[in-house]
Design a protein around this nucleic acid. Sequence first.
DNA 1: TTGACTAGACCGACCAGTCGGTTTATAGTT
DNA 2: AACTATAAACCGACTGGTCGGTCTAGTCAA
Lengths: 199, 199
Amino acid sequence: MSKQTAKQKVIDAAQQLMTSRGYSATTVDEIVKLAGVAKGSFYHAFQSKEELAIAALEDYEEKGWALVSNGPYVEIDDPVERALAFVQFIEDKSADLWAHGCLLGSVSIEVAHSYPEVIQRIDELFDEFEDNLAAILTPALEARGITDITGKALSIHFLAVIEGSIITAKSHLNPSYLQQGIAHFKHYLELLLAVDKAM
Amino acid sequence: MSKQTAKQKVIDAAQQLMTSRGYSATTVDEIVKLAGVAKGSFYHAFQSKEELAIAALEDYEEKGWALVSNGPYVEIDDPVERALAFVQFIEDKSADLWAHGCLLGSVSIEVAHSYPEVIQRIDELFDEFEDNLAAILTPALEARGITDITGKALSIHFLAVIEGSIITAKSHLNPSYLQQGIAHFKHYLELLLAVDKAM
DNA sequence: TTGACTAGACCGACCAGTCGGTTTATAGTT
DNA sequence: AACTATAAACCGACTGGTCGGTCTAGTCAA
């Protein structure tokens, strides 16, 4: 807890602040204050604010996937049931995972043309996340013989639903819209996979 | 063209810059430079950058809805067909409408706790847009006797799909993801309304 | 004693916002 | 039509403060 390095404390603080405020609106002084670290330590660990942002993004994606890559759904053999249980698992965890936003989404919006290295890393990190999702969704589509929608394309859409629902939840100051958005995606998946439900 | 007031030129410039860069990363100097207007004129028209942002958001929502409120779909009598034609219309227009992002989405992410007046206005403007969407989606749901999903809830989800797809398109530097995201929503709507399609 | 790390005062560039003044548009008077 | 009066629109150099980033002086473990 208190043993973590200044570097990690800075990354944690940056993730927290940039998730809710974005990149530009988050100042280095705020980060070091929240991290409880001096500015010298910041610039010893990172060459620039931009380099910190990239490190924070990488750490965020890694930790984020670690939190959802092991759930009850992994025990399910049937690929369709497993995919649906996975989406349900994400829905259940969403309020905790993205309570104040998503770092990748928050940063991506404002760096498109100004910081090419950052947006390129975001591109790669989202791609990793989508591949992880696709590894769960693709077998379900294959089991139903669906070929006109790829697991990757559906994963990108799932990601869009999550990011977009974070925006509606934030804008309307109503966290439940996040869970509801994911529930709609789950419903879409059920209809796609033609799962019978008690009506 | 050249007859528009300094105020409107500032609003146009602010919409353009804040859509792609967000609120904090857009400076007043950049805005007045793009608008071809002096800084004094800016502060003659607006009391602050924040007041400009609110004016730009209001103008954006108004113009945005005006661009989609009149399409071929309005001629269709059947509510189900009209709703689907509307979503198709949005899909067709999406690349033009949100080529560089959505101002409301871009600004909403970074103002949650720092600028309560701005986020409150975004809340209201999104709500207006959702009500406009709901006026088209609700009759389709009613025509199919669907009561467990309200038109408003589906509209919020539609908005989330749009905003989220803007993020995936921006992050992956691939504009077609926006159109693809909306196509998924259209597919979801077709399945919900149980529309028969040639397979 | 050396080298990784911490500390915070300090720097110049840049930020939002100000201010005194000029130009332009409108309206009334003759 | 010509002149004056008034108000609003517009202008850009300027200001106080904040930004990301630097620098020198330490601390401490091996």
